[in-house]
């Protein structure tokens, strides 16, 4: 399946792009991260400490165990600092 991946803030800076579309068989967000890390060392740097990264699946705040069934968009970003 194809998934659009978005990156924000320092995750975007470390990955080196704001979005991309990838073909994946990943069943969970964690498996998607593993696939990304295997592609390029930049992802390894960005995803070095997963405790510092939040995930949204189809614009809903999720976590790394969230399944990727019929999912269109996954976003990775640091803890939010709104307000």
């Amino acid at each position: 399946m194809q998934i659009e991946i978005l990156y924000f803030a320092w995750v975007r800076e470390r990955v080196g792009r704001s979005k991309e579309t990838i073909e994946t068989d990943a069943l969970t967000v964690a498996q998607l991260v593993d696939q990304l890390i295997s592609r390029d060392p930049a992802y390894g740097v960005a995803f070095k400490d997963l405790s510092q990264i939040k995930v949204a699946v189809d614009q809903e705040l999720s976590d790394f165990t969230t399944p990727l069934i019929n999912v269109c968009e996954v976003a990775f970003f640091p803890p939010m600092t709104g307000g």
Binding site: F8, A9, W10, A56, L61, A75, F77, P78, P79, M80, T81, G82, G83
Partner: peptide, 30 residues
Amino acid sequence: MDCLKSRAPFWKKEISEGLGKWVEPRAKDE
């Protein structure tokens, strides 16, 4: 405000003397 601080997808970057620094969340907010 508590929701906005920790759950709204905004990120702040401070630029001082040409250097950028992402604002880190405060444990107190969470």
